[in-house]
Nucleic acid binder design. Structure first.
Lengths: 231, 231
DNA sequence: CCCTCCTTAGTGGTATACCGTTAAATCTGG
DNA sequence: CCAGATTTAACGGTATACCACTAAGGAGGG
């Protein structure tokens, strides 16, 4: 996530963080002029930042109406897992097939961080370490298209982990151990299956928690129509 | 592909078409002011259109330098097939699992168009019918996230089919018949496997043709540096 | 003749300002 | 008091204009 200092990227990074941390709630209206004023940028870079977020799926832009934070329904969670299962599985397969001594070493460093964080029982650190482990596998897959497809999913996944709580860290960590071993051994089919199972294992807890929010099914069209009046 | 008449969407649609039709070649520089003048829009909507194309992968934006049409190397073709295999397979699985009488009927209409077009041996019509068949499956999968992930791939796939030529239409059509039957029967695993094989079958011919262009490995950084001087 | 410095214009990045649309607020008549 | 017409201004869409950066092309000295 480089930030070449441009105001657009600054606005993008700021908004993305606020959405992921739920400082901006799903369904919340994003008014260009207000945000531009708050972030001390003009509307042009802000608009471009919104488009980037929309391309990533974190924001919905209703043409001619405005932008709002994407709603995140139980169905969205289901869809997210459907896609993550196959893409993470593909990444693991490719990573295993293209594994080299140097790449295995890099992945192992991530795994060690997972172990350490899990031992510490530091939830923030665990989440970061797990995310880094998965990101490393994507990177090892050496498929730029896959990488670009995964980044929106990563954003939503991070979001999901903030909204819900993660499942048992020790269990996750041991699954990472298994996945690492298969990738290191160059076992493409095994790594793919292991990754699939690893993602699938997170589905039930997440959907269960997701069903408890059950936002009143925010309708983008409807929300976009509302306007504020002078305070 | 709706176009709410906004200038941004017009610029987007125009540029996308030109890229897909190779009127703009991979690696070609996209100069904001020139394109804006040519399309009779100002730079703001044009910039936003470029960002949309970049999010879709058809354009590369070098920060602070400029935009150019994405190169399309044999490695990119390989990556495209890696991802299409698993995503089209997932779409077929979901479509089969969620098949209803009404959805099967819709898909069958697409299939009939494939048959008719293949009988006519009209390559343009065949390409359109095949694309529509695949798009319908994505739609039946009823997973908005998957749909959004597929649209960039569709653009690149269409592009690929313009650059290369397709493989035997009759064979493709018969594979569609098989895939349709499995989805209609609600056989999720079978449909997934069939879709995977269908995509995989197109890999070899495409990569073979792709290796023949072998552009001089356009480097985005390098191309972006070049500037024109008064004509 | 070649190398170095300097001028200049092409280019992306951003701000400001205006326009059209339309929802909210206000006004009017019943 | 309420329903409909009318006014107001919020908001997204777009154009114009300015700035900073930098590479092309030329000037001047070795």
């Amino acid at each position: 996530m480089s930030e070449p200092g441009s105001l657009r990227d600054l606005a993008y990074a700021t908004l993305r963080q606020r959405i992921v941390e739920v400082a901006l709630k799903p369904g919340e209206r994003l008014v260009e002029r207000d945000l531009a004023a708050e972030l001390n940028v003009s509307r042009i870079p802000l608009r471009e930042a919104l488009r980037m977020l929309a391309a990533e799926g974190l924001v919905v832009i209703v043409p001619g109406k405005g932008a709002l934070v994407s709603p995140f329904t139980p169905a969205d969670v289901r869809d997210l897992f459907d896609v993550r299962e196959v893409l993470e599985s593909l990444a693991a397969r490719l990573a295993a097939a293209r594994a080299s001594a140097e790449s295995v070493e890099r992945l192992e460093k991530r795994l060690e961080e997972c172990r350490a964080a899990t031992a510490d029982a530091d939830v923030t650190r665990i989440a970061a370490a797990n995310a880094a482990f998965h990101a490393e596998i994507i990177d090892l897959a050496d498929n730029p298209l896959l990488t670009s497809l995964m980044s929106p999913l990563a954003a939503r996944t991070e979001w999901l982990f903030r909204l819900t709580s993660s499942r048992d860290p020790a269990e996750q960590c041991s699954e990472h151990e298994e996945l690492f071993a298969l990738i290191a051994a160059g076992d493409a089919d095994g790594a793919a299956a292991s990754a699939y199972a690893h993602i699938a294992a997170g589905r039930a807890p997440s959907t269960a928690l997701a069903s408890t929010w059950s936002e009143p099914t925010v309708d983008p069209e409807a929300v976009a129509k509302r306007r504020r009046r002078r305070t």
